[in-house]
């Protein structure tokens, strides 16, 4: 490259920054004045070649089912998703049992009536409320958001969810807490309508993991990340193959370019010699 290389490289670097800075700026925004510092946690799925911990996802599903599903729907997930690779990977029998534990509405039947029947693998997760209005009515006007993509719908993702679930505190002195709200260190504005959902021991764990709020929060955050990105593992794996392919391809193309252009340089030398 003939033009001054430093400005050129700087331009590309700055362009790259220009793409990334707004994201960083937003994270900063979330940290200042719109919520608290969200600490980064260690997640098995965070590194480029990371994957989910199957046992953790299974525990996280239990926490969702026993606690969160009482108010929060998850309408983009079906019971069959629980058996997919790269997820909690429950056995088909376990999924049949899990699905059959809930009653879902089906119909109309031959008489025109809707009826209840046990769930099947293909059914979407049962919603706790028939619609948003019913949800609000049951929750003092607040709408518990659907959790299918919550891990991507909030700055900080699973870090934020973990911070929120472990962020319930007594309000500091002088803080004006509205009637019916709870103080939370992570929630923007620090006042959240959701009461603290987790308490030590509220969900029994069968694999030896301690049933503490901290573990519940970690496990359900990981589960929610999987729910939002069920293809994460497939994406990481394919990504590795594609990057290696492209790296080798780049080397080959560079050598090809040099080999082709060698003729030109030879021609120039032939003329100048």
């Amino acid at each position: 490259m003939r033009i001054a290389r430093i400005p050129a490289a700087a331009l590309v670097a700055l362009a790259g920054l220009g793409m990334v800075l707004p994201g960083a700026a937003r994270a900063e925004e979330a940290a200042n004045g719109h919520g608290s510092e969200i600490e980064a946690q260690d997640w098995s799925f965070a590194p480029p070649l990371g994957s989910f911990n199957q046992a953790q996802l299974q525990r996280g599903y239990r926490v969702y089912k026993e606690i969160c599903a009482n108010c929060h729907s998850m309408r983009f997930l079906s019971y069959r998703n629980l058996g997919e690779l790269g997820g909690p990977h429950f056995s088909p029998k376990a999924i049949e049992t899990l699905a059959a534990q809930v009653q879902v509405t089906d119909g109309p039947d031959d008489k025109g009536q809707m009826f209840q029947r046990p769930g099947r693998a293909a059914d979407p997760f049962r919603s706790p409320f028939a619609n948003d209005q019913a949800a609000r009515a049951a929750n003092n006007g607040a709408l518990p958001p659907d959790l299918s993509v919550i891990a991507k719908a909030r700055e900080g993702g699973p870090d934020y969810i973990y911070a929120l679930l472990t962020g319930y505190r007594k309000p500091p002195a002088g803080f004006d807490l509205t009637q019916g709200m709870q103080y939370n260190t992570a929630f923007p504005g620090h006042q959240i309508a959701m009461p603290n959902p987790l308490v030590d021991g509220v969900v029994p764990y069968t694999d030896g993991t301690k049933p503490t709020v901290d573990n519940y929060a970690k496990d359900v955050s990981a589960f929610l990340m999987w729910a939002a990105e069920p293809k994460l593992e497939e994406r990481h794996k394919l990504g590795a193959r594609v990057m290696i392919f492209l790296l080798v391809f780049a080397v080959i193309m560079y050598l090809s370019k040099r080999a082709v252009w060698a003729r030109l340089h030879r021609r120039d030398h032939a003329h100048n010699a």
Binding site: M19, V20, G23, P48, K152, R235, H236, L238, G239, A240, V242, M243, L246, L247, F249, A250, M253, Y254, S256, K257, V260, W261
Partner: peptide, 25 residues
């Protein structure tokens, strides 16, 4: 061939974002 090489380099950046930080931007 030069355009081809440059394209593969560009695709490296594209792939890095797609597979490892698809929601960054």
């Amino acid at each position: 061939i030069k355009d081809g090489f440059a394209l593969v380099m560009f695709l490296l950046l594209f792939a890095a974002l797609l597979f490892y930080a698809p929601n960054l931007l």
